[in-house]
């Protein structure tokens, strides 16, 4: 698996500067328009998305097929993507929190409740969307996986908004959605591992 992760590291390095530019533009703009803590959501989701992007890059470069004939199990190839997603989302979250703190200090106000709320939103959004986009991008054709990418993020936001409307305590709603997100991500990982073993992959 080390080799597979190294391969993804090289791939990510090649697109990282584009992501950072997009993040800077979107993040700075959004943080002025809304809360500074929105940076955590943007950073977490954007960096997590790179893991999904590498699946499509693998497909287009022919590596996906090659990886399945390498001396690594099919499940290891899949595990690599789930682990990478968690790693990148985690880095994004950390980066977002640091930037949020810096931005709050510059603005002269640190609202810890907002910070906790946005950290929860970030984790929930990342886990919800990841639990959909990773398996669908990996197991389905490129066209169908594009559809999954389009649907996953609004659907994740919808679940979160739905929970926030149903439960008055926003932090509690956020916590519950995060727990559901963790469960969903774990279930998605387990089901995908079972699916990939017997799936025709050409």
């Amino acid at each position: 698996m080390k080799g597979l992760l190294l391969k993804d590291y090289y791939l990510i390095k090649s697109v990282l500067y584009i992501i950072l530019v997009v993040f800077a533009v979107v993040g700075i703009g959004m943080s002025f328009l809304t809360s500074t803590w929105v940076l955590t959501v943007i950073a977490t989701v954007m960096l997590g998305m790179i893991s999904v992007t590498t699946i499509n890059m693998d497909r287009n470069s022919g590596w996906k097929k090659v990886s399945l004939v390498l001396p690594v199990s099919r499940t290891a190839v899949l595990d690599c993507k789930y682990i990478l997603y968690l790693l990148l989302s985690g880095i994004g979250l950390l980066l977002g929190v640091i930037l949020g703190v810096v931005a709050s200090i510059i603005k002269g106000q640190i609202d810890y409740q907002s910070m906790m709320l946005f950290v929860g939103i970030s984790i929930a959004m990342a886990l919800f969307s990841g639990s959909m986009t990773i398996p669908l991008t990996f197991l389905l054709s490129e066209e169908k996986s594009m559809l999954a990418l389009i649907i996953a993020y609004p659907l994740s936001a919808f679940v979160f908004v739905g929970a926030a409307l149903l439960i008055d305590n926003k932090l509690l709603a956020c916590g519950l959605v995060t727990i559901v997100g963790v469960l969903l991500y774990s279930i998605s990982w387990l089901i995908s591992r079972k699916q990939i073993i017997n799936k025709d992959m050409t």
């Binding site: 391969k7 693998d58 470069s61």
Partner: peptide, 10 residues
């Protein structure tokens, strides 16, 4: 395989 086998940026 026929065609591409490895990431082209490598």
């Amino acid at each position: 395989f026929d065609g591409n086998n490895y990431p082209e940026i490598f």
